[in-house]
C-alpha cells in the first residue's frame, strides 16, 4: 500500500487487526482502518468482500474474533455502550416499525440514545422538515415508499446527532431527487464537523463525495487514501475510480 499523507488530527475510527471468521471462512482478515474526524470515507469492495461485516463490528452488532476498535478514542469492545452513544448505523435494509409514525419512531430512537425530550422534539421537527417528511409525521410508516422509509430511517440515525454516521448502501433504490437530498445532507454533515462512513456500489458517488476511499477485498484493506493516492497505488494516473477500483481488487480491466 502506498504511503498516505500524514495526519496528526483526531480520528473518528481506528480499527486494528480486526478479524471475523464464520467457521472456516474468514470474512474480515486482520483489517486495519483509520477514518479521520470530519471526513466522508467511502468503503468500497466487491460483494462479499467484508464491508458490511466490518461496519457491523464497528457498530457493536457483531463480535470480532480478534482486533481492536476505537470510536473517537473510545474502546468499542471494552466499553460498547460509550462507543455506541457516538455512532449511528443505517443498514442497507433499514427497519422501521410499520405501526409507528415517523415522529413516534424518532421519539423512540431519541429515547434509546437518551436525548433529552425537548432537544429531541426540536431536532425531530428540524430533520423531518429538512427531509420533507413533516407532513407525513403522523402517518404510520407502513404505507411509505422505499424512499420515504429510507428518509425516515436516516432521520432516526441523525436524531441523536452522532459523531460518526455509518451508512450501508444508503442510495440503493432511491430516485434521483431523493439520492441528491441524501448526498447533500451527508456533505453538510461533514462540513459541520461530523464524520461519515458509507459503503456503496455506485463508484461515481464515492468519487464525487468521498474525501478518502478504502478498498476492501477478501476481508483485507487493499488500499486507502484520496482518489489521487489510490490512482498512484494502482498505477493508473488520470483514470476513473472504476478503473482504479477494478485494478485494486485485482479484476481484469476492460479495454
Amino acid at each position: 500500500m502506498a504511503a498516505e499523507q500524514t495526519w496528526d488530527g483526531p480520528n473518528a475510527l481506528v480499527v486494528r487487526g480486526l478479524t471475523k471468521t464464520y467457521g472456516a471462512k474468514t470474512a474480515v482478515d486482520q483489517l486495519d482502518l483509520t477514518v479521520r474526524q470530519g471526513e466522508l470515507y467511502a468503503l468500497l469492495g466487491p460483494n462479499g468482500a467484508g464491508k458490511t461485516t466490518t461496519l457491523r463490528m464497528v457498530t457493536g452488532l457483531l463480535k470480532p474474533n480478534s482486533g481492536s476498535i476505537a470510536v473517537c478514542g473510545v474502546d468499542a469492545l471494552a466499553t460498547p455502550a460509550k462507543a455506541k452513544a457516538l455512532v449511528a448505523w443505517l443498514p442497507d435494509e433499514p427497519m422501521l416499525y410499520d405501526k409507528l409514525t415517523p415522529l413516534e419512531y424518532l421519539d423512540f430512537v431519541a429515547g434509546l440514545w437518551s436525548v433529552p425530550g425537548k432537544v429531541a422534539k426540536a431536532r425531530a421537527e428540524e430533520i423531518l422538515k429538512a427531509f420533507d417528511l413533516w407532513d407525513q409525521r403522523n402517518k404510520p410508516c407502513e404505507g411509505f415508499s422505499r424512499g420515504m422509509k429510507q428518509k425516515a430511517a436516516l432521520a432516526g440515525a441523525l436524531i441523536h446527532d452522532p459523531k460518526l454516521l455509518i451508512l450501508d448502501e444508503p442510495l440503493t433504490g432511491l430516485d434521483a431527487s431523493m439520492a441528491r437530498l441524501i448526498k447533500d445532507m451527508l456533505q453538510q454533515r461533514v462540513r459541520d464537523g461530523g464524520t461519515v462512513i458509507l459503503t456503496t456500489h455506485i463508484l461515481e458517488v464515492a468519487e464525487r463525495l468521498a474525501d478518502r476511499i478504502g478498498v476492501i477485498a477478501s476481508g483485507k484493506l487493499t488500499a486507502q487514501g484520496t482518489l489521487d493516492e489510490l490512482r498512484a497505488v494502482a498505477g493508473k494516473d488520470n483514470s476513473t475510480l472504476e478503473d482504479v477500483f477494478l485494478k485494486l481488487i485485482d479484476e481484469p480491466i476492460a479495454p
Partner: peptide, 8 residues
C-alpha cells in the same frame, strides 16, 4: 438491530 446498535 436498532436496539443492538443503541447504547441502551
Amino acid at each position: 438491530e436498532l436496539l443492538a446498535a443503541s447504547p441502551a
